[in-house]
Simulated assay, not measured.
Amino acid sequence: MQEVMADSAPKPVGPYPHARQVGDFLLLSGMGPRAAGQKDIPGVTLNNQEQIVDYCIETQTRQLFANLKAVLTSAGADWEDLVDITVFLTNMDADFKTFNRIYAEYFTDNKPCRTTVEVNKLPTPIAVELKCLAYKPRG
């Protein structure tokens, strides 16, 4: 097993790697739209108590996909290697259509299996998170 850490992705919020190569599979840790090296989260407005007062799911989703790309690249993988994605949204009614539209822009050729669920809260003040699995045979 080999750990993968991507310098161009935000640091994980806990003691875990961005991804782990296990045989021919690349398992990616849950990933959100925080930007590497920044305190502010793209597309999120917080109040003084660090609570979300406004957010843009489109901005968060695009940053999330940039983070995903950074981790895949660090592991020597690409979009085409993704085989399964679980999406966590904090507001399915408000955000699913927009998320789905943006998702379709990024996944035109490769269409991984996908599950989308609504959750009450995520570990940081974000509205979307991904959990991914890629198939990347060792060369």
Score class of each variant (00 low, 15 high):
95 D>N: 11
40 D>F: 12
11 K>V: 11
101 R>Q: 14
51 Q>S: 02
88 F>M: 14
33 P>D: 13
34 R>D: 07
35 A>D: 02
87 V>K: 02
23 G>R: 03
53 V>I: 15
32 G>H: 09
49 Q>S: 07
28 L>V: 02
54 D>C: 03
20 R>G: 00
29 S>I: 03
40 D>S: 15
119 V>K: 11
67 N>H: 05
93 D>Q: 13
24 D>H: 06
90 T>F: 13
34 R>N: 09
61 T>P: 01
1 M>T: 06
104 A>W: 09
79 W>N: 06
80 E>S: 11
54 D>W: 11
13 V>S: 11
8 S>A: 07
94 A>Q: 12
109 D>G: 04
84 D>F: 12
18 H>W: 09
90 T>N: 06
125 P>K: 10
73 T>V: 07
32 G>R: 06
71 V>E: 03
85 I>Q: 00
137 P>L: 09
103 Y>R: 01
48 N>I: 12
52 I>F: 08
3 E>Q: 13
128 V>F: 09
118 E>M: 11
42 P>D: 02
31 M>A: 01
38 Q>M: 07
131 K>F: 13
27 L>R: 10
125 P>L: 13
29 S>N: 01
82 L>T: 12
60 Q>M: 14
107 F>G: 00
108 T>M: 12
16 Y>I: 00
122 L>Q: 09
70 A>R: 03
103 Y>T: 01
50 E>R: 13
45 T>Y: 07
86 T>L: 06
126 I>D: 05
25 F>T: 04
92 M>N: 04
80 E>H: 12
5 M>F: 14
121 K>P: 00
97 K>I: 07
35 A>G: 02
134 A>D: 06
13 V>F: 15
13 V>Q: 10
8 S>M: 06
55 Y>Q: 01
103 Y>W: 10
8 S>P: 00
121 K>H: 14
62 R>C: 01
35 A>E: 11
35 A>W: 14
116 T>C: 08
33 P>F: 13
17 P>Y: 09
98 T>I: 12
24 D>M: 03
53 V>H: 07
51 Q>T: 06
98 T>P: 00
37 G>L: 09
98 T>N: 01
44 V>Y: 06
77 A>H: 08
41 I>G: 01
49 Q>A: 10
75 A>S: 02
